[in-house]
Amino acid sequence: MDAKTVIENRFINQKLVASSWCDSPEKIVFHFGAMQSQNYGQSLWAVGSRLITPSELAVKQAIDHGEIIRSWLLRGTIHLFSAKDYHWMMDLIAPTIDKICKPYRAKLGLTEEVLHKGSEVVAEFVAEQVATRKDLAAHLATMDLPSAGIQFAQLLVYLSSRKIICSGPDESFRNTKHIPADTTNFTREEAIKELAKRYIQSHAPATLKDFCFWSGLNVTDAKVGLADSPKMGDFYIMPLVENSSVTPTIPLAGFDEWIIGYRDRSVVLPETWHDEIITKNGIFRPAIITDGKVVGKWEKPKKLARLEGDYWDRYIQFRNML
């Protein structure tokens, strides 16, 4: 499949053109299944850039009110995902998170006893209150439990995967009692198929390797998930269209799905920009794309007046609505 067809169709499926923008942050996140949120502030723009009316406040409120959850999920990294999907996604992905993290836990002395005690202590602490990361650390310290560094971070990942904590307002933590009960009753195979469906509808055209990377699933499971998806050559597709409304230039968020959502990024990320956008320690910097391809990078400005060019209008609107 030629690069033009790939880019034109991804623009629609990734909701980066006006015809596919959504009227609510939750609808965008639900469409994607999960959106990378390693950088909280940048992930607000990742969602906001796909809204009909871009608003940072609207995205923050969706997270703060529990419509969107921000927690460790795919590949053991932080994602945004809909509260409607919370239970089946966590149930599907938690074993993979364990597989990734268990070697680190063992080296860090996070024994089953420590994890069990930490679970009880934190569950009680967040039962009636929202807690900041600092609050949790201070409380755990009083119980001689991990409260700093990688040990503490790994404990938080564990507590999240066990549905003891999830995101609260302003990057805090709270319990999961407000999340609606799971009504899907998916089998594991059905959950994999649903995850694959969300990926293809939001990232197609995409390959098996792309889905394996994004989801963290092994090839066998990924093939099960994609079994019902139409295919053209190596690409799984949605109905292909000729998209004449590709937005010429767009400032993308750091860790945006346009780039991070694929194993092979060569179609949109020229080699000359690779090291500028993706650092050696895995940070994905905010990128500027023209006709779908990276042509520059940018940083959050201290003054919006410094942003020059019509393509910044939606970002300025997004920031000004706070």
Rank of each mutant, 00 (worst) to 15 (best):
N39V: 09
R75W: 12
I63L: 14
I93A: 07
T111W: 01
V122G: 08
D313A: 15
A141K: 15
A191G: 05
L136Q: 07
V268L: 01
Y236D: 01
Q42Y: 11
A253C: 12
A305G: 12
N281W: 01
M238N: 12
A62L: 02
F152A: 05
V6Y: 01
L307C: 04
V295K: 13
A62S: 14
L51P: 08
L115I: 04
E8Y: 03
D91C: 01
R70T: 07
S19F: 00
R319F: 02
A222G: 03
K193A: 13
S119Q: 15
I277A: 00
A305R: 13
P205L: 06
S49K: 12
S20H: 12
M1T: 06
D221A: 03
N13D: 04
D144Y: 07
F235M: 09
L145E: 07
T142D: 11
D170M: 13
W273R: 06
L208N: 05
Q151E: 12
P286T: 00
L195D: 00
S161P: 00
A34H: 10
M1E: 01
T207Q: 07
E26A: 14
W45C: 05
D85Y: 01
K15V: 14
Q154D: 14
I150E: 13
A138C: 07
V6F: 08
P205H: 06
N9C: 08
V224A: 08
A204Y: 04
A94T: 14
I237W: 02
I69N: 07
H203T: 11
I12F: 14
Q129E: 14
E276W: 01
R70I: 10
D264C: 03
F318C: 00
W214D: 09
Y86E: 10
E113Q: 15
V224Y: 05
I179A: 12
L156T: 00
N320I: 00
I179C: 02
F213Q: 02
S43F: 05
K231I: 11
R306C: 06
P230Q: 12
F186R: 09
N39C: 10
D64M: 01
L145H: 11
T272E: 15
L51E: 04
Q38V: 09
T279L: 10
I52M: 03
L140S: 06
R70Y: 05
G76A: 11
K107S: 14
S229L: 11
I165K: 13
H274G: 00
L252K: 09
K117Y: 10
K163N: 13
K99N: 14
F125W: 02
A137D: 08
A305W: 01
N39G: 02
F30H: 15
N320A: 13
A196W: 01
T77F: 12
F235V: 05
D91V: 07
P251F: 05
F211G: 12
W72S: 15
T77S: 07
A18F: 03
G296Q: 00
A148L: 07
A227M: 12
A94K: 15
H79W: 07
A62K: 02
I192Q: 07
L195H: 06
S266A: 13
V246A: 02
I289L: 11
I179H: 04
